[in-house]
Amino acid sequence: MTLIRANLVNLSPVASRLTRLALSAAVVAVLAACGSSKPSPAALESLTPTVRVATQWSHRIGSVEGQQILAARNGQVTAASSDGDIVSFDIASGKERWRAKAGADLTAAVGSDGRYAAVVTQANELLAFDQGKQVWREKLPGRVITAPLVAGERVFIQSVDRSVRAYDVLDGRWLWQYQRPGGEPLALANAGVITAFRDTLLVGQGPRLVGLDPLKGTVRFDVNVGTPRGTNEVERLADLVGPLARVDDEACVRTFQLNVACLELNRGSLRWSRPQAGRMAVAADERIVVGADGADRLTAWKAENGDLLWRVDRFTYRSLSAPAVWGNRVVVGDGKDYLHVLAADDGRTVGRIELDAPLVAAPVVDGDTLLVLTRKGTLYALRAN
């Protein structure tokens, strides 16, 4: 059985403690590997690297728990530690541009457009900063674990109940709220999809990608990315997993434990879909789409039609991170502190670098620079020969 582990949130307001315990038991029974012992991770392959990865610069920002987002905009990258330190660096030089303190532990971080930044605290407060100076805070009605999106002088947040709220970035004024009717009773307690495409806000609503008018919160399109299947609510859980991989007018995304799909965003239509039971986000460029399944088998498909390009099982049960496409290479981190570099055309391993801890954010590519954040809170800017 494919190994997939999930954190779930029960969205029913009348759910009893017994029901929540039963659902937790169902996660163990349905999503964990058959048997009580965890499979051993694959051993590292012998490697004579043909690509050498070097650290351009690195900074320690503080330990990070759970998933985070690296916000890279306008030549700078913004990251946050779990205890509320928020720092922005110049990508080219590594020079610190500004630093801020939230004054509380964070559950969702960090969204930034290069000037403004936003985070959410464990007390469900949304905080906004202008070049490191806090400008406002707002109490939210529910828990948030997906990093806010800052775009178009607005801050957009998505709660674990899948509701989406918009605020004015200048003064914190609440603008609108959207929630798709008839949602599923369970949600994946994992970073969801909330991003921008031109003048449209893209949000995940269970297995559906919804395009919203960012000014009004009205629906522009609603496309089904995958059809859940199973005999119970846990097996039918199929939220879209963030971050979504944007490639010009197209985007590719994972539906939890179900499939990987690519969409045409101008029409709001599904281009192709391939089954793959996984839990981590996918990466894509104009040539390939890459993602790992629940057993950490890494697969690449042709972006144009979804045809299989290659599949490797050298990293099984190594707890792979979300991958990134870095020029003609694919990079992916593992739970043993290594970052692996693969050739994009055939999946052969061409390089490897050891970091100080596993990754806690999807790698981000900015030009020739690869940005990664580890669990110990070290932000690396990497370059390859």
Rank of each mutant, 00 (worst) to 15 (best):
K302V: 11
R311G: 01
V325K: 05
S319L: 14
A292N: 07
S321M: 05
A300S: 14
P323L: 02
T316D: 02
L309H: 06
A344G: 11
L320F: 07
A303D: 09
S319D: 10
F315R: 00
V331N: 08
T349Y: 01
P323T: 12
A295L: 05
W301Q: 00
A295S: 11
L320W: 01
V331A: 13
G327R: 11
A343L: 07
V341H: 08
R348K: 13
H340G: 04
A292Q: 01
R297M: 06
Y338A: 15
N305H: 14
A322D: 14
P323G: 06
D346N: 15
G351W: 00
V325N: 07
R329Y: 15
R318Y: 00
L359F: 04
A344H: 07
A361S: 13
V332C: 00
R329C: 08
L309M: 12
L308V: 13
A303G: 09
L309Y: 02
P323K: 07
F315C: 00
K302E: 11
W310F: 07
A361D: 08
Y338E: 14
L320K: 05
A357D: 14
D345S: 15
L339P: 02
R311E: 13
R314I: 03
V360W: 06
T299L: 01
W301L: 11
L339M: 12
F315L: 15
K302T: 15
P323A: 07
K302M: 11
L359T: 07
V325I: 15
L308S: 15
D296H: 03
V325D: 02
V341C: 07
V312A: 03
L355V: 09
E304K: 13
V331H: 04
I353A: 04
G347N: 09
R348Y: 02
D346I: 12
Y338G: 04
E354K: 14
L355M: 12
G327S: 10
R297D: 06
D345N: 11
N305G: 12
V365D: 01
P363Q: 08
A295R: 02
A322M: 05
V360G: 01
D345H: 09
V325S: 04
A303W: 00
E304I: 08
N305A: 12
L339D: 10
P363K: 06
W310H: 03
D307W: 02
D366Y: 08
A344Y: 00
L342S: 10
E354Q: 13
A303K: 08
L320Y: 01
A361I: 04
G306H: 04
S319K: 13
V364M: 07
P358D: 12
R348D: 09
G347K: 05
R352F: 08
V331G: 11
A324Y: 09
D307Y: 02
A300V: 02
E304M: 05
H340P: 05
V312M: 03
A292F: 01
V331R: 04
T316G: 01
L298I: 02
V331C: 09
P323S: 10
L339E: 13
V330A: 08
D293I: 01
G335T: 03
G333Y: 03
D346M: 06
R352G: 11
A324L: 07
H340K: 06
E354M: 13
R318A: 02
T349F: 00
